[in-house]
Computed example of a mutant assay.
Amino acid sequence: MTRTAIVTGGSRGIGREIVTRLAADGFAVVVGYAGNEELAAAAVREAEESGGRAIAVQADVAEEQAVAAMFDAAESAFGGVDVVAHAAGKMALSTVADLDLSVLDAVYRTNVRGTFAVAQQAARRMRDGGALITFSSSVVGLAFPTYAPYTASKGAVEALTMVLARELRGRDITVNTVAPGPTATDLFFEGKDQATVDRLAAQPPLERLGTPSDIAAATAFLAGPDGRWVNGQVLRANGGII
């Protein structure tokens, strides 16, 4: 039986690299995407070129019915769901003093409500022996100024991890969170000058930025047979920053 993975945020950045990696590892993959159909189609092609089967499904992760429909599509196309990698997210930067609370609401809608909506469907519908991988960020520990809205939302994701792992007792389903450090994606480079990029790249003892393939490898470990004894954990994939 072919195992099936849903990857939200699968059309770009880290999510897209996860799609390609899981397809190469033998998964049938559902590429969840928010709005860019062209990028999602390209992610499907890359997955197929890696030897896997894939489909793209548009879904706002904060919309309960849309998330349920994405799981419906996975079950219809591939027979069930074994792994969910929830990489979709939203970032906004502001000091607390200057924060527009409507911006906070938008961040929480995607990062907190969206994680709960995806985790809820995963808990209801993943086959026994499955794996749910959510995404936080190493900024939760680094506590950079202006990152409070994003950090607070990702702290909520981490708080969910062990609770849900315990709620799924008896089903052999693991629940873990990957918390990347600075990673070389288009989103990371946006708005940063070279001096800022160099400073962030110098922070880890390994003295470089992470790559999407680094994060995809950590995700694939948790999704695969070698990660079955890791449960309820936050994996800080950041080269040793903290």
Score class of each variant (00 low, 15 high):
A5H: 09
F188A: 01
A202N: 12
G141H: 12
L168W: 09
T211L: 09
S94N: 05
A74M: 13
L209K: 10
T183V: 12
G26F: 10
L200E: 06
I241M: 15
N238L: 10
R171L: 12
A88F: 01
A148Y: 09
F188E: 00
S153D: 00
R124W: 10
A123W: 14
T8F: 07
S76N: 12
I215H: 05
D82T: 02
E48F: 04
D82L: 07
G79C: 07
T177P: 02
I14T: 00
G210W: 07
Q65H: 07
S11F: 07
A148R: 08
A43Q: 08
A179G: 09
F221Y: 15
R124H: 12
G10L: 12
G224H: 13
Q121L: 13
G79R: 10
T8A: 04
A165V: 05
I6Y: 11
F189V: 02
V67G: 05
Q58R: 15
I215F: 07
D105C: 02
R171E: 00
E63P: 02
V83Y: 10
A88V: 01
R166D: 00
V81P: 11
T183A: 03
E158M: 14
G191R: 06
V157C: 01
T219N: 07
N111Y: 05
R124K: 15
G15P: 02
G141T: 01
T20R: 15
F71G: 08
A237G: 07
V19N: 08
A201S: 14
Q120G: 06
T115S: 13
P145H: 06
S102K: 15
L209H: 05
A40N: 06
T146E: 06
I173M: 02
G35R: 15
V107S: 06
T95C: 05
F27D: 01
V31I: 13
I215A: 02
E38W: 01
G26K: 14
R169Y: 00
